[in-house]
Write a protein that binds this DNA or RNA. Structure first.
Length: 264
DNA sequence: CTGGGGAAGGGGCCC
DNA sequence: AGGGCCCCTTCCCCA
């Protein structure tokens, strides 16, 4: 998978930007400058739209996906209906409303006492961990928060096939498709503000991470860390075959691919 | 070919 | 819950 396949490139990617025009000899960039460079994140309408997360599909453990999936993913029609066996986050009002329903994904039990009389406590039992709840709302909460989400990655991305255990993780992932953070200078788009900030350093020349062993400085902490390995006598990554060590995993991989180790 | 720098992606953790 | 940050990783390019 190409590293930058998610990045919207609004310029000829084969050419490097002319940084010399923007080159700032001083390493420090004021917050004001930074703010002026960072384009206010004005999400595209579709980013703000509830449609964004509408295609989240959450199958319950005992359900199979409905068929066919609606192709229209508008906020209303796109949402799977609870009657289809889907679990979707509901308001309290909804929970109460559906307490009286009997979804396909839970076990509804009526216990019988030894005397033969039917017990008054009817339980909603999780099909996965068998915990029982007196109300459907209780069961629903349990499943959404703990059990089912972990048993099955329940939040699916509409742009790709990735699945996540939490809505937050999915939202974060979706940003890698929508790329709401746009560089004011070159139009390049990023998924997160701090990625954009790191990119802006390529324009400003700011290098806040300096090496304590030499005079080099870096715009990115990870690159400094990689650089520090070059000062280290002990290289971190070792070939299992020939014991040769490398400062980076990518170099070890290159070494392995070049034929030292038998391809697996 | 190899090593290293630069840029970027993305998951996870913490506040 | 969401944003910021940390860390790891990958890819490209160049000396």
């Amino acid at each position: 998978m190409p590293r930058s396949f998610l990045v919207k490139k609004h310029f000829n990617s084969s050419k490097k930007p002319n940084y010399s025009e923007l080159d700032c000899p001083t390493a420090f960039v004021s917050q004001q400058l930074l703010k002026s460079l960072v384009m206010p994140v004005i999400p595209q309408p579709e980013v703000l739209s509830p449609v964004m997360y509408s295609p989240i599909t959450m199958w319950t453990a005992s359900d199979s996906p409905p068929s066919p999936l609606p192709t229209d993913l508008s906020p209303v029609s796109g949402y799977p209906s609870p009657k289809d066996g889907h679990e979707i986050p509901r308001s309290d009002e909804d929970e109460h409303e559906h307490e009286h329903e009997q979804p396909a994904s839970f076990t509804f039990t009526t216990t019988t006492s030894p005397s033969g009389a039917s017990d008054v406590t009817e339980k909603f039992r999780c099909a996965l961990c068998h915990k029982s709840y007196s109300t459907y709302a209780g069961l629903l909460k349990h499943k959404q928060l703990h059990c089912e989400a972990h048993a099955r990655k329940a939040f699916s991305c509409k742009y790709c096939e990735k699945e996540y255990v939490s809505l937050g993780a999915l939202k974060m992932h979706i940003r890698t498709h929508t790329l709401p953070c746009v560089c004011k200078l070159c139009g390049k788009a990023f998924s997160r503000p701090w990625l954009l900030q790191g990119h802006i350093r390529t324009h400003t020349g700011e290098k806040p991470f300096s090496c304590s062993h030499c005079s080099r400085a870096f715009a990115d902490r990870s690159n400094l860390r990689a650089h520090l390995q070059t000062h280290s006598d002990v290289k971190k990554y070792q070939c299992k075959n020939c014991s040769k060590t490398f400062s980076r995993m990518s170099l070890l991989h290159k070494h392995e691919e070049s034929g030292c180790c038998v391809a697996h």
